[in-house]
Design a protein around this nucleic acid. Sequence first.
DNA 1: AATGAATGAGAATTCATTCAT
DNA 2: GATGAATGAATTCTCATTCAT
Lengths: 228, 228, 228, 228
Amino acid sequence: MSTPGDVLDDEATPISPATGRPLTKRGEATRRRLLEAAEEVFAEQGYHEASIVKITERAGIGLGTFYLYFDSKQSIFEALVIDLNRRVRHSMSEAMEGAASRLDAERAGFAGFFRFTAQHPALYRVVREAEFVSPEVLRLHYSRIVEGYEAGLRSAQQTGDVDRRLDPAVAAWALMGMGELIGMRFLLWERDADGVPPAELDPAVFDAMAMFIDNALAPRHDQEGGRS
Amino acid sequence: MSTPGDVLDDEATPISPATGRPLTKRGEATRRRLLEAAEEVFAEQGYHEASIVKITERAGIGLGTFYLYFDSKQSIFEALVIDLNRRVRHSMSEAMEGAASRLDAERAGFAGFFRFTAQHPALYRVVREAEFVSPEVLRLHYSRIVEGYEAGLRSAQQTGDVDRRLDPAVAAWALMGMGELIGMRFLLWERDADGVPPAELDPAVFDAMAMFIDNALAPRHDQEGGRS
Amino acid sequence: MSTPGDVLDDEATPISPATGRPLTKRGEATRRRLLEAAEEVFAEQGYHEASIVKITERAGIGLGTFYLYFDSKQSIFEALVIDLNRRVRHSMSEAMEGAASRLDAERAGFAGFFRFTAQHPALYRVVREAEFVSPEVLRLHYSRIVEGYEAGLRSAQQTGDVDRRLDPAVAAWALMGMGELIGMRFLLWERDADGVPPAELDPAVFDAMAMFIDNALAPRHDQEGGRS
Amino acid sequence: MSTPGDVLDDEATPISPATGRPLTKRGEATRRRLLEAAEEVFAEQGYHEASIVKITERAGIGLGTFYLYFDSKQSIFEALVIDLNRRVRHSMSEAMEGAASRLDAERAGFAGFFRFTAQHPALYRVVREAEFVSPEVLRLHYSRIVEGYEAGLRSAQQTGDVDRRLDPAVAAWALMGMGELIGMRFLLWERDADGVPPAELDPAVFDAMAMFIDNALAPRHDQEGGRS
DNA sequence: AATGAATGAGAATTCATTCAT
DNA sequence: GATGAATGAATTCTCATTCAT
């Protein structure tokens, strides 16, 4: 019905889907309240349990008003995923700033990712649910993150920090997948005795993972020129 | 009402949830037809688009009959995920049989996983969707696979085939995550010019991934005893 | 669909609705078990909550077997009401035996009615529910009881024990109604501190009612020949 | 989920169960149409045969709209019984106004009750069915009527119009029961040759009943101080 | 005589979306 | 801009009854 394209140009000035005109200041505030409410409701209840009524009630606005700002439930969900993607990437790149080496940067990037996930555990579930709600948006989400990874790996290969024989695209997707499942297993599933989720990834797990990554990426002097 | 526990003892003789008695031969056949139909419908339409009407129509049985065999849509979904888990693991262990070394076995396991995914692309989506439908069942699915991985890594560490400094649990989850995302990106998303999904994982991708894994797991003679 | 007439000739040898032939000894036993089970289930759950499955399970027989003995859920319900009617009337006439006077007999009849109600509180609900399930059977139930009342009043008027100016039919229905509502209010609704229903009607209530009835029925010497 | 309590405060401004807010004028009109339609449908078909589809069709509104005003079929039924209770009592107290004596008032009250029943024969069935749908509401219905009766009897005992030895509560329930069954037998069941229900209670029956009541209530000068 | 698998009409209920105010 | 009443397609689930074994 509505294509995700509507919403993927995420930096553009928001326009009303009803009038096609840019929003007034009051309108922008309402839109923001809707997005914030949607974030909470989707995070707490998941896509299918969430409803427009719940979102508008949480936002404190009238039900009908919703459709002045978004085409559909799917479209606000997509806008939200786009927004989360920006925030995750921001958390990651912030963490990577000033890293001494590529491998350090890699570790720092993961740390940023895990920090975001730990701080918004339910929210990250929203992103994963996009696979079943709006696959295109999920692709976009993954692709944007992988893009950065891949570029980093590629330049690190040139400086010799990363094993030149690796395929940067495949390696980037592999790293992304590792982060996802480690995050799911050791952050989202983990609860202490009182049922409280951890505030951050267990450092031992993080170190174990960092070593795994180091191994995978670092040039191997013992095998240089080796295998097919 | 129904807990996933009902369905997790996957080898037990199936019993009717309506009467609590074991199924007759005729009943077992009907149950099987329902599961097969559910597999198709869930794969094609996803959990929420699927409906019991669609499933029973596909199975060619009456709507009410469904409830003689399953409590709800969720319960047949869970039974299906359990069944898929068994089949994925079978595909993996079959592929690993007779591997010469641990690293070979690892590669072979991935190959088995990718083969299954390539042959049932939509089906694997079903498993992933379980995260949002029946999280306990998804945990079980992942845990069962990881369990095997972890045991394999642990014994390979003893023989020295795998870097002893790695944490086998973390490594196992990392490998699992890699497989998932590589499979998603290079199998489920991939289409040729005619929109046909690939029959198998692109060998170049597979090799690239194999090298990544080898790097990650193999003992590093140049750093032996090295880092924190 | 099925008319209550099927079942109203309550003393006839029961015949199978399926074959139209009289039941064998084994068949009669099964029929009796069904009726007993139905009595319990209807009493506990009411007509609409009760189901054939529940009845046959309680009776310990197969579901399909039910239809060898009764046409429908309604028809077993009707059979049950007929049966209860017989038992209530038996309880009443037993109590009335050997009463010294008509007014004594009247009181005794009520006592018999209340005793039955107190002993089978839920069961008497079944009879009342017949108004909404099978009105003809309820009419029959009431009419049969009223018939006896009316005859008793009529003959007592001849002996002068009961005010000759009263219309025996109207008086009989009035008495019936009194019994019903007093029974409902002071037996079915009453619970002690532990939620236990009373084992019998509170004697004070019974006496108060008896005086009301005495007043209503006894000839009034002070007004004899009086009012319109 | 919904307790009958929701609906028992019958004079309160109606609020939407969906939003919890008071109704707009338009909303109140819709609610009234629903109640009127429900009255007809319940009266014609009984509680279990009635359905929300039938009610909304009769009301000429959309199916989903029903749930903006009532939680469930049971809840509109309860609202209806409450409403009928108010109307019956109104009919009774109107008839009793200006009665010369207590016994006259008693007769007049019954006349009012029978008039209402005669004018809405099917409707009174609705009230009786409440016993099996929502027992609390039925209790409330009876209790409210009996309350008035009892107070009237008590004060008439003080003036000496009613036999002081009677228990007013028991007498009130007895009178209520008489009215119910006389009404059922001589109004609801009665049909003339063309199957038309009577427009009012047969005066002969009414007089017979009035005499019964007079007898029951009037002080007996011949026995004053008499029995146990 | 007994069984229980199969059936499908029908019920209640939800919720994204529209539109008149 | 904002509102919330109205809508109805779609969904899940129940259960009296049938019928082949």
